[in-house]
Simulated assay, not measured.
Amino acid sequence: MAALKGVKTLDMVGGEITKVSYEGAEYERVVGDAKIGDIIRLTEEARHDVTPGGFYTVRGVRGARVQITDDVNEPHHWDEDYYDLFRKKHRRLKVGDYAKVVEGSDLDEADAGDIVKIIHDDYDRVPFKCDVIKGRRDADYIWAEESDLVLATEAEVAEAKAPKFSVGDYAKVVGDTYHSDIVEGAIVKITDLADGEGDLRFELVGDDDYDYAKPSSLEKVSAEEAKWAKIGRKVDEYKVGDIVAYDDPQWFENKGIGEVTEATDEDNYAGVVATDNGGRRVKYYLLPEKLTLITPVEVRFDRS
């Protein structure tokens, strides 16, 4: 894991950083042995696969020696001469907070890493009633002590609230992708479930291009949206020259085939010329539910 991004300096004394914020939590500079979950700021003298002056999460501790994951995703150990130590400032969790079940919790109803939302606090020995957002008891609730939980990060909450996908589902890209080849707004099809990094593999609808992304970067869409996306359109977006089947007994008094002569307007109507039951060529403005796209104008053989 590379140096942490988004760490903001909140306070300095004598040119030394004493307080920072990261993912919504405040961290204060402390003296003493590190703990797993603390963050360190490496000195400018730190080298070899790290960012001098960068912040890193403590992954392991042996006395004053800490382990981090460096910029090439390898474990790296540092003595206290090469870092300043910062620890998350404690605050009591409150109703509305999202929290994570900690390692070593005595909860029978939840596992370490489960994400919950605190919905009630009665200030008793087991004060927090929590909705389970992601975990063994999804959509259920549990009661937890303060020592069972820590404040969840924004990334953890986003991942927990991300939609659950299956192979064959369609989605819209709404965030970052691994290769950045497929842009936001594109419609894709899920082709493989989460890998070791938690990324889904997907292909661009109507193309062979593929990429990977976290579920939080995708938004489920319907098969209907995907079908229209294959021709580069929104659902029920008709263009001049499209051939459509119409079903409007109120006006045409029959079913048949017509041609769009005015594209879908801001009121969601399309102008269609078709033959009524008397053989007359008539133009009417119809809502999309009266139409079925037969041939998009882009692929009509009678058009150059």
Score class of each variant (00 low, 15 high):
Asn73His: 08
Asp207Leu: 12
Ile182Cys: 00
Arg59Ala: 15
Tyr98Val: 10
Glu298Trp: 10
Val205Phe: 07
Ser217Trp: 15
Ile17Leu: 03
Ala226Asn: 07
Ile36Ala: 03
Lys172Glu: 12
Val167Glu: 11
Leu218Asp: 02
Thr264Val: 14
Asp242Gln: 10
Thr57His: 06
Val132Ser: 01
Ile36Cys: 02
Ala144Lys: 03
Gly60Met: 09
Gly241Trp: 02
Lys230Val: 10
Asp114Ser: 05
Leu218Ala: 03
Pro249Asp: 06
Ala160Thr: 10
Pro52Trp: 01
Val167Ile: 15
Glu184Trp: 05
Tyr170Met: 09
Trp251Asp: 12
Gly256Glu: 01
Glu45Val: 08
Asp70Ala: 04
Tyr212Ala: 10
Glu253Phe: 08
Leu151Val: 15
Trp78Ala: 11
Ala34Asn: 07
Met12Glu: 11
Glu154Leu: 11
Phe252Lys: 00
Ala112Gln: 01
Lys239Pro: 00
Lys234Glu: 07
Lys189Pro: 00
Pro296Phe: 12
Asp248Phe: 15
Thr292Lys: 04
Leu151Trp: 03
Gln67Val: 05
Asp248Met: 08
Asp114Trp: 05
Ser105Lys: 01
Gly96Ala: 11
Gly63Gln: 12
Gly32Lys: 04
Arg65Tyr: 07
Asp70Ser: 11
Asp199Tyr: 10
Thr9Arg: 13
Leu193Ala: 10
Glu224Ile: 07
Lys290Arg: 00
Ala99Pro: 09
Gln67Met: 08
Pro75Gln: 07
Asp276Leu: 06
Thr295Phe: 02
Asp121Gly: 09
Val205Trp: 03
Arg280Gly: 14
Gly175Cys: 11
His76Pro: 04
Ile190Ser: 01
Ile257Leu: 11
Val30Ile: 13
Ala171Trp: 06
Val299Phe: 05
Lys19Glu: 03
Lys134Asp: 12
Pro249Arg: 04
Ala186Asn: 02
Cys130Tyr: 05
Lys214Met: 14
Val20Tyr: 00
His48Gln: 06
Gly32Cys: 10
Ala139Glu: 08
Arg125Leu: 15
Tyr238His: 04
Ala46Asn: 01
Val188Gly: 04
Leu291Ala: 04
Gln67Lys: 03
Lys189Tyr: 00
Lys88Tyr: 02
Ala160Lys: 00
Val297Gly: 05
Lys290Leu: 00
Asp49Cys: 14
Ala139Phe: 11
Pro75Glu: 06
Lys134Asn: 09
Tyr141Met: 13
Asp124Glu: 14
Val13Gly: 04
Glu262Tyr: 14
Gly232Ser: 07
Val66Tyr: 12
Val235Gln: 14
Glu266Pro: 04
Ile231Phe: 10
Glu80Ser: 11
Glu26Leu: 10
Thr261Asp: 06
Val30Cys: 01
Asp207Ser: 15
Lys189Leu: 01
Ile294Lys: 01
Ser217Ile: 05
Ile142Lys: 02
Val244Asn: 00
Glu154Arg: 09
Glu266Gly: 11
Trp228Cys: 11
Gln250Cys: 13
Tyr178Gln: 03
Ala245Glu: 09
Asp211Lys: 03
Lys234Ile: 09
Val183Arg: 02
Leu10Thr: 12
Lys214Gly: 15
Gly196Arg: 02
Ile190Pro: 04
Glu74Trp: 12
Ile133Gly: 06
Ala25Glu: 08
Asp121Pro: 12
Gly135Asp: 13
Lys117Asn: 11
Glu225Asn: 08
Val150Ser: 13
Gly206Asp: 14
Asp148Cys: 10
Gly54Arg: 09
Leu151Tyr: 06
Val50Phe: 00
